[in-house]
Design a binder for these strands. Structure first.
Length: 291
DNA sequence: TGCCAGGGGTTCA
DNA sequence: TGAACCCCTGGC
């Protein structure tokens, strides 16, 4: 990896399988803004970063080498060879087409607590609304980080910071609707040690999923999303209405039960089913497959 | 301008 | 298994 440092910019030359648009627009993260120059500003781990792809190079702005090495390298999963993952799908012509379309997608290594709350908010919700609720929660319960491109950025609250919330504030001020009590309960269960949040990290996909599902507001789909996006379990295959539609159109040729979709997804794509899911999602949503 | 359907899911009956 | 749930947007 060839790194060039230029003031507050870190430039990675010829960075393969990396496209900010595909990374952020495939439904795995909600704390980003698209800028006029086509770059993306993202806030994570108490930092604000701007990412721009220029030809084969990627420019990471508003950061330094130390943060790049300690935070962003891991956040963007740069130690994983996506080319090798893609090759495991080589025998699947349909998937090859999806990869061609969505190449550059990476599974972000996001904060566990933020991922839990964010995907609880995603239940029966739309992306703009999810982003708005999360932004309001950060502004109300997180801490100010900095102003970048005329926008104020706040950290995502810790379990402790969010545990002092009132359900009515979550509803009325943060616009989370019927998810208010659930979020309040989960933050407090974690803060009070009533949920083994800090023991989950080294468990298997199944163990994490089964534990998460015991929380209010977390069912199968959201538990699968959290294991994939918050715990880096790449064999997780979340099935939402988009994945169901895409798989029905591209693989089944008819309507099937949700369980059939998740079974086929994990059988077919194995230990990288979650990466395949992201290619399918991006391809399906951008092309409105099945709609 | 105003009404209404529906959404990347979970819960409860 | 199916209806209800809050908020917001888009279509008419």
């Amino acid at each position: 990896m060839e790194i060039v440092i230029d003031n507050d910019d870190i430039i990675i030359k010829k960075l393969e399988n990396f496209d900010p648009e595909h990374i952020f627009e495939c439904g795995q993260a909600f704390r980003w803004d698209r800028e006029e120059d086509g770059s993306y500003t993202v806030v994570a781990f108490n930092r604000v970063l701007n990412v721009l792809k220029v030809g084969e190079d990627v420019i990471f702005r508003n950061t330094n080498l130390e943060d790049f090495e300690n935070i962003w390298k891991n956040y963007f999963d740069l130690n994983t060879e996506y080319k090798a993952i893609q090759e495991t799908f080589n025998s699947d012509e349909t998937m090859k087409k999806c990869i061609e379309y969505g190449d550059g997608i990476r599974i972000l290594q996001q904060d566990e607590f933020e991922t839990i709350i964010s995907f609880m908010i995603s239940a029966n919700n739309r992306i703009p609304q999810i982003k708005k609720s999360i932004r309001l929660i950060c502004e109300k319960y997180g801490n100010f980080i900095e102003t970048y491109n005329n926008r104020d950025y706040y950290s995502f609250p810790t379990p402790s910071e969010l545990s002092i919330c009132k359900p009515e504030d979550l509803r009325e001020h943060c616009r989370v609707g019927f998810r208010d009590e659930r979020i309040y309960k989960v933050a407090n269960m974690i803060e009070n040690g009533e949920f083994p949040f800090y023991d989950l990290k080294n468990k298997t996909r199944e163990e994490i999923r089964d534990t998460l599902i015991t929380l209010p507001g977390i069912g199968e789909k959201i538990a699968d999303c959290i294991t994939l996006f918050g715990y880096d379990k790449k064999d997780s295959f979340p099935v939402d209405v988009w994945i169901k539609r895409v798989m029905e159109t591209l693989y089944f040729g008819k309507e099937v039960k949700k369980k059939e979709v998740s079974d086929l997804g994990r059988d077919k794509f194995g230990k990288y089913a979650g990466v395949a899911q992201q290619y399918l999602f991006y391809y399906g949503r951008e092309n409105k497959i099945g709609k």
